Amino acid sequence: MTAPGTPASSGPGAAPRAAHPPTRSRTVFAAAHVVADPYADTGPDGPAALDWDATLAFRHHLWAQGLGVAEAMDTAQRGAGLDWTAAAELIRRTGAEARAAGGLLSCGAGTDQLPAHGATLDQVRAAYEEQLTVVEDAGARPVLLASRQLAAAATGPDDYQELYGHLLRQTARPAILHWLGPLFDPALTGYWGGTDPDAATATLLRIIAAHPDRVDGVKVSLLDADREVRLRRMLPPGVRCYTGDDFHYPELIAGDTHGHSDALLGIFDPLARRAADALRHLDTPGPRGAAAFRAALDPTVALSRHLFRAPTRHYRTGIVLLAWLAGHQSHFTMVGGLQSARSLPHLRRAHQLADALGLFPDPERAAARMRALLAVHGGQDG
């Protein structure tokens, strides 16, 4: 494992450039998980310890498929074991790897260096600015992460408009705004200044309308396809809608006669090869390309809905399980011990669904690892 401070380019940075070009018709990011150091002497409340070689090698796997990497997002356990110190190092190292590989990179800038409660709006603003500096120094496109501290401190829509306007006026490149619904994080209930989703949409659109040249797009993770489509149709020209809907992504990416969603998705972490192959069908204009895309990606929705079922925030456990079963890492250990967040029947079903999709390069190894996991924890080994 790479020692802290070792330049990332000395290890995984030597990996080959993308084996497949990105799709021309969509901008797509896979939100990537992190690989814990299983031998680190740390506890659930201790600092995060990562296996840097395995973590960065997985980013090269995503770039090799022609996908962009969305770094330090909730899939990487932001706010769920990955502290800001580790996230900042992750952003810096992945930025170096992106430059070496020529890979597309966006990174989350939030406020998670602040205490969970009691932060003022000025402190929230300063925290965002600190993290934006790290992201922009890494050469990445910033994603302004939804902030638990802002949700707690804001008194209404005006506070969101003022704070986001301040941040957008100073970003070095257009940012992606992040709307993460309460299914993913209950602490974000009422984001944009109220619990009425129509009013929240109106606030978000006012922020974008005031700074259209500073907003690359909006990442929408509401698990509500109809609302995403309505929002998508109201965005100004040139502002993308990045679907974060892990329940309805094929139909949203395929789009309709009025437009389509781009994508920033956690489910594309385990689906990288399959998703990339499907997306290339969309480079063929017309119904034939869309039909081939849907035929390739629709069968994956059952797996995604299983991984993201309530409580949705624990989807990361299934993501990391599949990475281990697929051979991208040597163990099933997560930052903060979250490998225990899902039941054995849930994990076993995830293996069955992924195996039926042909996601494992070595199905026999995947099956053996699943049997070992079940046996160690007292489950059936068949």
Rank of each mutant, 00 (worst) to 15 (best):
A48C: 12
A48W: 08
D159W: 11
S106Q: 10
R99P: 02
A64I: 01
G110H: 04
A72F: 05
A72D: 12
L67Y: 14
L82F: 10
L56V: 10
A153W: 02
L62R: 03
A72C: 14
A98W: 05
D137M: 11
G66C: 10
M73D: 01
A76C: 12
G118W: 13
G165K: 02
R99C: 00
A96K: 08
E130Q: 14
A140N: 07
E97Y: 00
T85H: 13
R92W: 08
R141P: 00
M73K: 03
Q131E: 13
A88D: 09
A151L: 01
R125A: 15
A127V: 06
T75Q: 10
T75W: 01
T120S: 15
L163W: 05
A126V: 12
L144Q: 05
G95T: 08
Y164M: 14
A88P: 05
P115G: 06
V135L: 08
D158R: 13
Q161M: 14
Q131W: 11
A49V: 08
R78S: 13
V69L: 01
M73Q: 12
A64F: 05
G95A: 13
A88Y: 02
V135S: 06
T85R: 14
R148H: 11
R78P: 00
G66L: 06
A152W: 04
D122H: 10
A100S: 11
D158L: 12
A48L: 09
R78L: 15
G156S: 02
W84T: 13
G81F: 09
E129I: 05
L144P: 07
R99I: 10
C107A: 15
E130N: 12
M73V: 11
A54D: 03
R141I: 14
D137T: 10
Q123G: 05
A48N: 07
A127I: 09
M73C: 15
F58D: 13
E129V: 08
G95E: 01
R92K: 10
L163E: 09
Q65P: 09
F58M: 07
Q113I: 07
L150F: 04
A140Y: 03
W52F: 02
L56N: 06
A138G: 12
Y160M: 10
L56M: 02
A70M: 09
G139F: 09
Q131G: 11
A88N: 07
T155F: 00
W63I: 08
L114H: 02
L163S: 06
M73R: 01
D137A: 15
A54F: 01
A86Y: 03
G156Q: 06
A100N: 10
A126E: 15
Q149I: 09
L145P: 00
A76K: 06
T111Q: 09
G81Y: 04
A154F: 13
E71Q: 10
Q123F: 02
A109T: 08
A54Q: 11
Q149K: 03
D74A: 11
